[in-house]
Design a protein around this nucleic acid. Structure first.
Lengths: 220, 220
DNA sequence: GGCCTTATTTTGATTAGTCAAAATAAATCT
DNA sequence: AGATTTATTTTGACTAATCAAAATAAGGCC
C-alpha cells in the first residue's frame, strides 16, 4: 500500500498537471508538497522505480496510468471528505482543506463509497471542484448542483440532468428552469433537505436527491 | 504533536491497564501494538523521556497524567468513529474496528466534537464500551442506550436518565419502563430516528435524543 | 559562443520506527 | 541454592523520508 507521502506526491503531480499531460517541474512539485527540491528528486526517482510516474531527469515528471489511478482516488477522498465536513458537519469552509488533507490518507474505499452515497453522489465539492468518479473519471467542466453549491450566494440554474417528465414538470411548476437565479438558504444533509429562495422571493424546499439533479453556476 | 506510533502505544497502555494503575508488562504491550519486544522497550524509553509514561525497567510501564490525557483522547476518537461508522454509515460491525484504527489518528478535535454532537453525545459505542468524555472521564460501568446499543437484539431497559415529568410520562405511556425488553429494529441517525419493537409486538419510533436517555443492557 | 542565472541532482547526515539476535536479569522449579 | 526457563533490554543494522549544501546541467543573454 502507498504511504501517506507517496499519496501526497501523486496527488500534487495530478493537481499541477491540470488536465494536460505536460511534465510537472520538480520545483513546482517540491513546493507543493513543501519539501526542498532535493527531497522531491529522491522521491520521484523512487516513484519511477515503482512505475507510478515517468521521470525525465532535468525536465520533470508525469503520472503513469497506474499513478494517475492512485492519485485520482486520493483526490476523490479529499473532495468527498471536504463535502462531508461542510455539508454534514457544518464546518467552516476555510478549515476543511487542512482536515481533509489528513483524512484523505486514512479513509478506506468502503467508507468512501458509503460517504459518497450519504452525500448523494455529488459531482463537485462545495467549491465547485469536480470529484473524480469511482472509476477514475474526472470531468474538467462540471457544474455544482443545488446539493453541493455554496450557500447564501446567487447561483444560476444551468441544466436539469434528470430527464423524466415527472421531474421536469415538478421543476417547471416550481420555477426551476435553466436561467433562473436562486439562492440556497439552508442545507440539512442529515434530514436530506435543501431550502432555497428564488430572486422573486418565494422559499422552496426540496430533497437532496432532487437538488443534486439541478446543475448551477455562480450568478456572476 | 504525537505521531501515529506514539498514539498507538499510549492507547494500548491505557487499554491494557484496564482501569487500575498497575504496571503493564512490556511483552503484553509489544504484542498489543504488534512489534517485537525490543521495539517496545525502545519506544517506551522515548515516551518516558517525553514524560508520557513512567517506565520501571524490567517491570513495566504506566501512563503519566499527561500520557493518560492523550490516550483517552485517542480512545475517544476511536470509539466515536466506530459509532459513526455503524450508526450513520451502516457499516458491518466486524469491519469498523480496523477502519477506526486508521481514522483515530487523522481526525481533529474539532471534527470529533461535531461528530459527537451529530451522534447525540453517546456514552458508549455499539459494543457497550464506554466513550471517554471530552474532559477525559471514562466511566467503567456505563450502559448503552437505545441510541447506541446493538440493533436486532433484545435489550432490557435499565434506567431513564431524564427525570422531567413530561419525559417520564411519555416513556410510561409507551411502555418504556425499566425491566421491559425491547429490540431496536432500525436506527436512522441522519433522520434522527430510532425504531423499536417491544416483545409484546407494537412498533414505536422515537428521536435519537430521547433514545439516548434510556439506558439498556443486553437481555441475557 | 561563452558567461551567468536558475533549476535540478548528488552527497552526506539526521530522525522515527522497526527487526534480529545476543546479552542480561528475574522468576520458577526441583 | 543452583539450574533452567522466561521476560526484558541492548546492540547493530535497516527503511522511509527528510534537510543542507555542494555539484551539475540547461537556458537565456549579451
Amino acid at each position: 500500500m502507498a504511504t501517506i507521502a507517496v499519496e501526497n506526491y501523486l496527488k500534487h503531480v495530478l493537481l499541477l498537471s491540470a488536465g494536460s499531460d505536460d511534465l510537472v517541474s520538480m520545483g513546482a512539485l517540491a513546493s507543493a508538497v513543501a519539501v526542498v527540491p532535493g527531497t522531491a528528486t529522491t522521491m520521484v526517482k523512487a516513484l519511477a522505480d515503482e512505475g507510478l510516474v515517468e521521470h525525465q531527469p532535468r525536465h520533470g515528471v508525469r503520472l503513469t496510468p497506474e499513478g494517475r489511478r492512485l492519485a485520482l482516488n486520493v483526490l476523490r477522498k479529499h473532495r468527498l471528505v471536504e463535502t462531508f465536513l461542510v455539508n454534514v458537519l457544518k464546518m467552516d469552509w476555510a478549515k476543511v482543506h487542512a482536515e481533509a488533507e489528513q483524512l484523505e490518507h486514512a479513509i478506506s474505499d468502503e467508507v468512501l463509497d458509503r460517504l459518497d452515497a450519504l452525500l448523494g453522489h455529488p459531482q463537485t465539492d462545495p467549491h465547485g471542484d469536480p470529484i473524480p468518479s469511482r472509476q477514475g473519471k474526472l470531468s474538467s467542466q462540471v457544474y455544482a448542483t443545488l446539493a453541493t453549491c455554496v450557500t447564501d450566494r446567487g447561483v444560476r440554474i444551468v441544466r436539469i440532468t434528470e430527464q423524466s417528465p415527472e421531474f421536469l414538470q415538478f421543476a417547471e411548476q416550481n420555477g426551476l428552469q435553466p436561467g433562473t437565479t436562486v439562492r440556497v438558504t439552508d442545507r440539512n444533509v442529515p434530514a436530506g433537505l435543501v431550502t432555497l429562495k428564488k430572486s422573486g422571493g418565494r422559499a422552496l424546499a426540496l430533497s437532496i436527491v432532487a437538488a443534486g439533479k439541478i446543475l448551477v453556476e455562480p450568478a456572476r
